[in-house]
């Protein structure tokens, strides 16, 4: 069974720690070159390889990631 996923990041509250980036199995997250109002390079989704596995959200200390997943 294959999945497609997407994530929504609460950008103003992301602290840009990068733990999600290191934990993403599909390389679908990176830290933005932009910063939020706190000065953090927030996480952002890249590409369309996300499978909605939730690894990023599980390890996120600030609970800023919402994960969507659909079977295809």
């Amino acid at each position: 069974m294959a999945f497609r996923g997407s994530i929504e990041i609460d950008t103003p509250h992301c602290k840009g720690c990068g733990v999600c980036v290191a934990n993403c199995p599909t390389g679908s997250i990176q830290l933005s070159r932009m910063v939020n109002s706190k000065g953090y390079n927030y996480a952002e989704m890249v590409g369309d390889a996300c499978i909605g596995c939730s690894a990023c959200a599980l390890v996120c200390p600030d609970s800023v990631i919402t994960v969507y997943r659909v079977k295809i």
């Binding site: 497609r4 997407s6 909605g52 599980l58 990631i65 919402t66 994960v67 997943r69 659909v70």
Partner: peptide
């Protein structure tokens, strides 16, 4: 399937705990 179709409330599998 585009991102907007995926990001529907019924497809949420993980979110900030209540």
């Amino acid at each position: 399937m585009d991102t907007a179709e995926i990001m529907r409330p019924e497809n949420i599998v993980y979110r900030k705990p209540a």
